[in-house]
Amino acid sequence: MNQMSTFRRIAPLTAGMLLIPALAMAGDPMPQLDFGNPLLKSQVVWGALIFIVLYLLASKIALPKVGSVLEERAAHIARDLNGAKEAKTRADVGMTEAMEATAKARAEAQTAINAAMTSAKEKAAAQAEIDNARLEKRLQDAETQIAQARAGAMSALRQVASETAASVVTRLTGTGPDAQKLDAAIGAALSARGVG
């Protein structure tokens, strides 16, 4: 708009300035204003005709030709861009899928490892328990046997002691001891030693 007003201001000034030498130099009028010349009008009529033909040829044939080529190119570029975009999208999807698969596989492996470790631990613990129980049982058995053996030995001790004491007394005195007294004496002796 600024440009326009500048032109507007300059134009009449230029026109005026430039017409001065033209008018000063020629006594006869400007051919452009020689209205008696029929060519002045005819050139406008012919000019209008030529301009209309030029406009029709340009607007109907020549310009659409250019426009179609430009459109084709724009469409081609848009198509290629779209293709590239789609390919990128596909690649991105593939990449994401691959990453997801990797993560999944890793997680699965981790789970499997954990499960294997847990089960191994459980198995080991169970085995240990069984072993413990068996050992415990054997220990108890052994203790029982020892206790039995000891009890057997203790009961045999009393018999041996009374028989030995009876035979000693018989040898010494020639007569058998009173069984009741002997038994009491052995019982006292055994309990004094903590055995009876």
């Binding site: 032109f7 134009a11 009449p12 230029t14 026109a15 430039l18 030498p21 033209a22 452009q32």
Partner: peptide, 16 residues
Amino acid sequence: ISLSVRLFANMMAGHV
């Protein structure tokens, strides 16, 4: 006027 005289005057002046 401005549109026609601008073009006319410029072209004529140059050729003069």
